Every structure is written in structure tokens, then in C-alpha cells.
Simulated scan of single mutants.
Amino acid sequence: MLKEKIIKELNNFKNENRFRILKTINSNSINLSSNDYIGLGNDSDLIQDFYKNYTHLPLSSSSSRLISGTYPLIDKLERNLENIYKKPALFFNSGFDCNCCVIETFCDSNTLVISDKLNHASIHDGIIHSGATLLRYRHLDLEHLRKILKNNSNKYETILVISETIYSMDGDCVDLKKLIDLKKEFNFLLMIDEAHSFAVHSFGMCYEMDCLEFVDFLTIPLGKGGGSTGSYLICDQIYKDYIINKGRKFIYTTALPPVNIAWNLFILEKMESFSDKRLKLKELTTVSHKLIKKYNMETLSTTHIISIIIGNNSKLDHIVEYLSSKNYFIYGVKEPTVPKGTSRIRIGLSPNLSVENITTFFEELNYAINNVF
């Protein structure tokens, strides 16, 4: 019965043109789907420099952090983070585990979690696991958030508000100052995810805006602009101690190998030297948005992440296939990742691309949107 149920569901996915498969990228393709936003993960000079500094590192930690997985490199990484952010830091193996663990560890049935409607799946899963009451505010609509806070501020023992800085699917950005102003007014706990702003904004938008004292839980997943793997959590010592003692996804996970931690430490120590990469990304972002306006394409993006709304799943498949034939690796995003009827081309810019790459790509994309289907 289980297999029959699964077969039926997979056939429905195929009929609706939303059946997903794994694809490998051709090394000769121009990659417009990477999340390596400032080009750290594939910088051959940077990698060569890293291996000059760090040689013969173990490829496994072979233990959780509470046993022998807190080795000197990971301790040094957390101490360096504390020097930068002026708050205690804790390292997690992934952004998903970090977000999920924070929420399920600190929230319970007496908690109200108010979450942006488009927050990441890791955030949603953490809320479900916690047993907290969930209310969602319209995406980036902080006036709607204000109304929810006003109606609920005296009803719960704890209120946690969660937002990302830059959003992965729409490429839009929270008004962080306004969100902090709401925290000052209503005195809720605030959790911010910087997965798509870290490195693009140096040590992150919260750091740049000098508002870290108002962020109770700052999560910094490293698989995007960080060019690596794992996640930082920046929080007060009491919260750090509690996770070490109660956070299941932290306690029962084997620590990442020293080679990964050394790379994170290496990148962190060099973060302020990547200004040229950030300037190149800014240039490409400006060029891209001018071309989007020129070709009258539909997007909500204001950042280096650009989603071009197509809407029709079958048309999206044809466009992706056409662009692939022109040697562009590009990812088409469909429901349930995005709402039904908003399937899209998702572009992740990086300084590995040139202005010519971007200009030619948008010419081809414009042709495909208007002529392929």
C-alpha cells in the first residue's frame, strides 16, 4: 500500500510538471544557480593559500562536541567569532540544524512564534517540533507584524519573532531598522537568519548596522556567501549554555572535520579583504536589474538573488532546456518551494561572472520567455 501511494503521488508530480530530479553541472557551463555569492568556495588562489597554511588536517572529528569533538581549531573559531560579534558563539554543522535547534530548544507550548510567511523550511520545522503556537505575518509586511504583536503581546509567556535578512526565492530584503524598532517597542525575542547576507555584507547586515545587541539569536549559515559548510550561532552565554545542555541537534551530532573548521576560520580571518569581490557583485547586480527593467521582466528582487517569475511550470521547463542548450546552468524553481503559479528562474550572481556573461544571458532569457513554448 505504501508503494502504491508513493507511485500515485510521484505520478501527480510528473503530470503537474513539478517532478524533481538531481542534475550534475557541466564544467563548461556558465553557472547562474550558485549560492557562492562572492566566489569564495571556488577561488583557486584562496584554496591554494589555505592548503599552504593548513596541511594534513584530519578528515573526521569522530565524535560529538560534548565528547572529543571540541578540538582546538573549533575552539579558536568560536573565540574569534566572539571577538568580532562581542557575544558568545556556537558552531553548528548546518544552517538547517542551527535554525531548527534554536527554536525547538527555547520554544514550547507557552511560546508564540511570529514568523515571516516566507521563512526557510528549517525555521518552519523548528516551530513545528517545538509545539509553540505559530502566527505568520505577510512577507516583509512589518505593519502586519505590528498588528499581530499588538493583539498578542500580553497573551503568551514568551514571544519570538523570526526573520531572514535577504530572502532566497524573491531576493528581497527586510527593513532591519524598522524590525529592531518593533523589538524595542514590544520587547519580544528576535531571531535573524543571515544565510544570504553573510559575506555579501562582510560579517552580515546586523553587524554592519551595529544592532547585534538587539538580536537574541543570530544564525549565520555558511553554505552560501560563506563558501563553506556549517553555521554560526551568536547569542548570550546563558542561551549558549542551555543549547549545550539541551539542544538535541547539537548534542547528538558528530562535529565537522577539522579541515572544514580550518576553512571557516581561514575565511573569517580574511573576510575584510574581500571588498573587491563585493564591489564586483554590486556591479553585476546593478547591470542585471537594469537589463530586467529593459526587457520588462517580472521580479520582486532588489539584491544579488534574482527570481524571474514565469508562472507556468511547462513553460519554465522549456525555458530552462533552451538556456541549457546555450550552455547556461540555471535552476527552475516550482511549488512547493514557491507558491503555486509563481514558478521562476532563480539567478544567483557572483563575481565569477562577467558583465558580458550577464548581458548575453539576459538577451537569451528574454528570447526564451517570448519565443520558446
Rank of each mutant, 00 (worst) to 15 (best):
G204Y: 00
E283I: 11
E269R: 07
L279M: 12
P221E: 00
V259Y: 05
A195P: 11
D170H: 07
L279W: 05
I261A: 04
I166R: 14
V161D: 02
E298H: 08
D210C: 14
P258A: 03
T165E: 02
K282H: 10
I261K: 03
N187V: 10
K290I: 07
L160E: 03
D181N: 15
K249N: 12
D276I: 08
P258R: 00
Y167F: 15
V200I: 12
N264Q: 11
D172V: 06
E272H: 08
E213A: 15
I244M: 11
L189N: 14
V200H: 01
Y207I: 10
L190I: 06
W263P: 06
E208R: 13
D181W: 05
F266W: 00
D193V: 14
V287Y: 01
T299C: 10
V174W: 04
Y232E: 01
I162Q: 03
V287G: 03
G204N: 02
Y207Q: 09
I243P: 02
M271W: 07
P257H: 03
F203T: 15
M297V: 04
Y167D: 13
I180E: 08
F274E: 00
V215P: 09
T285Q: 04
T229V: 15
I292P: 01
L291D: 02
T254Q: 13
D175P: 15
I220N: 00
I251E: 02
K184D: 13
I180P: 14
H289S: 08
T158A: 07
L281Q: 00
S202D: 14
C211Q: 05
L284P: 07
G226H: 02
N296V: 10
L256N: 05
K249H: 10
T285F: 01
M297L: 08
D172N: 13
S197L: 07
K293R: 09
F214S: 15
N260R: 09
L279F: 10
T299N: 08
S153A: 11
I220W: 00
K294I: 04
F266D: 01
T219C: 10
K224A: 12
I192R: 03
N187Y: 05
I243S: 03
S231F: 03
T299K: 08
L190P: 04
I238D: 06
V287I: 07
E194W: 04
D236I: 03
S228W: 00
Y252V: 13
Y252P: 08
N154K: 13
I244Q: 06
I251A: 07
K183D: 04
I159K: 05
